[in-house]
Amino acid sequence: MPWAFVSLCAATALLASLLLPLAFKPWLRRMAVLDMPSDRSSHSEPTIRGMGISVLSAVVLALFVALFAPLSATQKAILLTILVVLLAASLVGWIEDLRGLRVVTRALCHLAVGAAGTAVLAWLAGGIGYWWTPAGAVAVAAYINVANFMDGINGISGLHGLVVGLAYAIAGALTDIHWLVIAGAVIAAGFAGFLPWNLSGKPVFLGDVGSYLLGASIAITAVAAFLAGVPVEYLFAPVLIYLADAFVTLLRRIAAGERWYVAHRQHAYQRLVIVGLSHLQAAAVVTSATVLTSLLGIFAVANGPVGLLIAAVLCILVVLLYLRTPTIFQRLIRRRNSRVSGLAQ
């Protein structure tokens, strides 16, 4: 394992993500790339968006450095494919930030990027997985949109990139797949560097360029790892909470006859803020559940069929508990307020 290069790539992503906003923030302000608050927003004043371009630049730079690591030609080609896919997806997001795109156009772009990336990765895997191209296209397109749907409060996307990136880096170490360690570490470091900017007194937002980057980088890395033979438990468990929140909310809205593609505040993480948690507290709830399912994925692989069954049951319980957290915290906050009111009297 080229640990020196792993450290170098992670440090490059982290430092670039921390420092590049110093240059990009004034530029975005001059271009008036702003997120205007609405009744569906979790913020109350115009806020700079599009700062995901700094995370994108950091991740691209770090992956470029990784191409000089002592890896095989195939592993370098996989990293290059991941780089191109996340760059293409982020470009779609940047256009969306600047001028907007029709829903159908966005969907077709996401599917095209996912299909092309999966086909190349299947070829690099020896051409044995071309039939996975449609599934890979849907997976990439779906997770880009999941990440976009879930990017609604400060801290949530940065923490998600950090946790899932680390989970994939650990999966790479456990399976001795060096490129996966590097890719996971770069994703984790890139989004960790954005957190201080997003959680500051005057926060900035990733924008679509950043949420598309988050979804595409995680999804295409998972597709590449799957084609390389990494156990699916390692890949699916870290994204389970995001998928559950996004798809359960989607199904509820469709069943209610609502326009599912219109912005709203019905996700579990959004309802946590509505009932009284801060953005960081709500993001911490989501992140804690994600850490739990990630650990259960590792447990499942390490303990065979019995471990898989136990982990599956526990993951279901974690998901159900997470989806109930808005109701749970609402009751706790009401009880606390009642006690405080009683003491005041």
Rank of each mutant, 00 (worst) to 15 (best):
Y269Q: 04
G201E: 04
G155S: 06
F191A: 00
A112F: 11
T287L: 02
I128D: 13
G276V: 06
F149C: 04
L206D: 04
V92W: 10
A32G: 06
V291W: 08
I144R: 05
G114T: 07
G276F: 13
A142F: 10
I53Y: 09
A189R: 12
A169K: 11
L159Y: 04
G307F: 01
A167L: 00
Y261A: 11
A189E: 14
N145W: 05
G207S: 01
Q266G: 10
A173C: 09
P326F: 03
R339P: 08
R265G: 06
T293Y: 12
G184C: 04
D35N: 10
R40W: 05
A10F: 06
L174C: 02
G207T: 03
V146M: 06
A255T: 02
G100A: 00
V181S: 08
F194T: 12
R49I: 01
I333F: 15
L272T: 02
M36H: 12
T287A: 15
S90E: 06
L240A: 15
V262H: 11
F68H: 15
G165W: 06
L214D: 12
L277G: 08
R30D: 14
I53N: 09
I298C: 05
L195W: 04
C315R: 08
A32S: 10
A122R: 08
N145T: 02
V186I: 14
M51E: 07
V291Y: 03
Y130N: 07
T105V: 10
L343S: 15
D245G: 11
P196C: 00
L34R: 07
V313F: 00
R331H: 15
K76Y: 05
Y168D: 05
L243Y: 07
P46H: 08
L309Y: 03
R259K: 15
W27C: 00
A139S: 10
A289D: 08
L296W: 06
F24N: 04
W94I: 12
I82M: 09
F68R: 10
S90N: 05
L71H: 07
L214I: 13
H267T: 08
R259P: 14
A219C: 01
A256I: 00
L91E: 08
L272M: 06
L292I: 13
S157K: 00
S294Y: 11
G342D: 08
N303Y: 06
M51P: 13
A289M: 04
I316W: 07
V275Q: 05
A188D: 10
L195C: 03
A268F: 02
A188V: 07
A189L: 09
V140P: 14
A300Q: 09
G161A: 03
L199R: 09
G52D: 03
C315N: 15
A116K: 14
S211C: 08
E96I: 00
W179D: 10
H264W: 01
A169P: 15
P70W: 01
L86Q: 14
I153K: 02
H110T: 04
